[in-house]
Design a protein around this nucleic acid. Structure first.
Lengths: 334, 334
DNA sequence: CTGAAAGCGCTTACAG
DNA sequence: CTGAAAGCGCTTACAG
């Protein structure tokens, strides 16, 4: 490997000082058109690119941010991350992606690892740790955008997906279809969005005069995956044949549940109707295709990044919470 | 935001020079046990973490690497990336993830963006650009691990998945099941792994005395997604009812094809058998579950990272190519 | 419009 | 075993 060209190399060849080179490439400070072109020609020729670390050291900005998500294997998150990344790259930012496996300890580790890395900000999905840790982080380090969790702090912006409303839409749809014995595959116990979803589920039942059967709400699913959905639906339906419909915390659980129905010989939706949440691409491609709650994941990512950038560039501005609504998409599974 | 603690803060409070602090935290150079403990106590108390950029500037190592993949929405890549990340984090490395959408221009942009970021190395999946650009990059910048593409260069390591063998296994399995009219949904034209897969497909047919029908090999699929699989299978089967089996470049295409069959009223596997490639988690969860070629994606990621680390730490060592084999997994779709 | 000086937060020789 | 000096590659005031 050769040594990379530095600003000094450019300066020497262009016959100017390195401050002048800096002006030329950053389009900053007064500089004559001639010298500017001169310098840029040398930059071009040498393939010079400023060293980000050196820049970061003095500007205190690294043009990097971090995303922390529970599970990159859940198609929801890649699509969200895409929204973040596309926006970030467009603004010359690079992105670190961290997985937590839904483990609160990993969240904190990721947070501090990103801080040491010098990111300018963090986007945090479904944070499960304590408010205090997060606030301390936001105090000492950098702005944070949190999704689906409410934390009040000047350096933290909140984006909430309306899980409560989504759950209600799903259940009301099932009730309209004539179901009364509706179960729910709920998400991880510690997830704040799960809490709101379960509340929406229960409220919808109650409002329509239906009882809430506690044991039909399956709740200790650490990570909401296909396999989890398959296993818990299998067990649930075997033990409770009176159930005719299932609402799931996310599409992966729902698709796993469809598989369980197929294996048990239950026809979907005739014997058991199923509704998911998220509307991942796959939802329309499984058979039967999945009725679900649509969330605009890509836009959500863009919004999160826009919000973070705003906080980075205007440290003193206030960032009001954003609420994102969802829609029912009816397909073959109901 | 408060200012972060620096090595000077620690030094001042501990009453030593900053070199001594450096020794204490890096466990390097001779230092007395007493001072070491003394210093670490202060480090602990202040929550001090060395600034990675400052470290990087002097050591010329940033403890970051980059991964470039075509499409994070394809579950193959998250699983691969997980293997890379888990290994990386364990070695104190952080990872940048870049998408290219299968676009060769984006690959080059990502490569140079990562270089400016100061990564210590890059893992590159199914590179579609020219050898020369990649070699120039490896010359000037950092070691590269390339998957599924053969490039000879001292600073580039190659890992090849045996796509050729996988394709043969798939076709032989279909022939054994009695199929003679077998079509293929091939991948992106520029993908080198596609070329080898198509070759395996054709060779298997020829070896069993079956003709290769060119128009049954659907080849201009820019990005091998569910939707692409659905659309091209739909078209293929509508126009060529004599086809009784489809082999797909990857599981997403295959699952899209299953959906197309369902909509056309073809029963899988009775009317049309389908084989995928990759064995993503989903393959066992769709109905009918998918016969496919198993690739150990997570291990592949670990191997790539191990290989890259080795090149970073031993710049002069030679890295022989690795060949990874695959297995047939028979499920319900054949 | 351009350059000399200082410094971002670290580590790597070099003295002692 | 410990500290004074130099420097990694940049940018930000400050002079002129």
């Amino acid at each position: 490997m050769e040594r990379l060209a530095t600003i000094n190399d450019v300066a020497k060849i262009a016959g100017v000082s390195r401050q002048t080179v800096s002006r030329a490439i950053n389009n900053k400070g007064e500089i004559s058109l001639d010298t500017r072109e001169q310098v840029l020609k040398v930059v071009q020729h040498l393939g010079y690119r400023p060293n980000r670390m050196a820049q970061g050291l003095v500007t205190q900005h690294t043009l990097t941010i971090g995303i922390i998500i529970p599970d990159i294997s859940n198609p929801f998150f890649p699509e969200f991350a895409r929204g973040v990344q596309d926006f970030a790259h467009q603004e010359e930012y690079n992105v670190f992606l961290c997985n937590t496996d839904g483990n609160p300890d990993e969240e904190v580790k990721a947070l501090y690892s990103l801080a040491a890395q010098g990111v300018d900000g963090v986007i945090l999905f479904t944070y499960q740790g304590s408010d205090d840790i997060l606030k301390e982080f936001a105090d000492k380090y950098h702005p944070v955008v949190v999704l689906n969790r409410y934390v009040e702090h000047p350096n933290i912006a909140v984006i909430m997906v309306n899980n409560y409303h989504g759950a209600k839409l799903a259940v009301e749809h099932l009730i309209e279809r004539g179901h009364t014995n509706i179960a729910m595959l709920a998400g991880p116990d510690t997830s704040p969005s799960k809490v709101r979803q379960v509340k929406g589920f229960c409220d919808a039942l109650t409002e329509h005069g239906l009882p809430v059967v506690a044991k039909w709400i399956i709740s200790s699913l650490p990570l909401p995956t296909l396999t989890q959905g398959y296993q818990s639906a299998h067990q649930l339906l075997s033990k409770n044949p009176q159930i005719t419909a299932i609402f799931a915390y996310n599409d992966l659980l729902a698709i796993g549940a469809i598989r369980a129905c197929n294996e048990l010989g239950y026809r979907v939706p005739t014997d058991c109707a199923i509704v998911g949440f998220d509307d991942i691409q796959l939802a329309s491609m499984v058979t039967p295709s999945l009725t679900t709650i649509y969330v605009n994941k890509y836009t959500l990512g863009e919004q999160a990044m826009a919000r973070l950038l705003n906080m980075i560039n205007n440290p003193d501005s206030v960032s009001p919470s954003i609420y994102v609504d969802v829609e029912l998409v009816v397909r073959e599974s109901t």
